[in-house]
């Protein structure tokens, strides 16, 4: 049975012996951490857009909010790619 990626990832962390794979595992860990923080930043950006569009209402409010949500989805998608592809 194929084990879920999270188990493989956690398993690789517990077997930290220096091998040619070790720098890549470390890089993946750093990237995951960065992407988690970036996803939080994208969430804050949505909050900021909400604040800005309430301050000044224009016909572009809907488009601007959509850009914020697309950016958030992109951040989550890249987080998922980092987690599964690497």
């Amino acid at each position: 049975m194929t084990q879920p990626p999270i188990i493989g990832f956690l398993d690789s962390l517990t077997r930290l012996q220096f091998s040619p794979q070790t720098p890549l595992i470390a890089l993946k860990f750093v990237l995951l951490l960065m992407m988690t923080m970036y996803a939080l930043f994208a969430l804050v950006m949505i909050r900021q857009i909400d604040l800005m569009t309430k301050t000044i209402e224009t016909p572009y409010t809907g488009i601007i909010k959509m850009i914020g949500y697309i950016h958030m989805i992109a951040a989550l998608a890249v987080w998922f790619i980092v987690f599964t592809v690497l």
Partner: peptide
């Protein structure tokens, strides 16, 4: 990842 950061900067 780099291009995503760049998009965040631009937005």
């Amino acid at each position: 990842v780099w291009w995503l950061f760049t998009s965040g900067f631009i937005i």
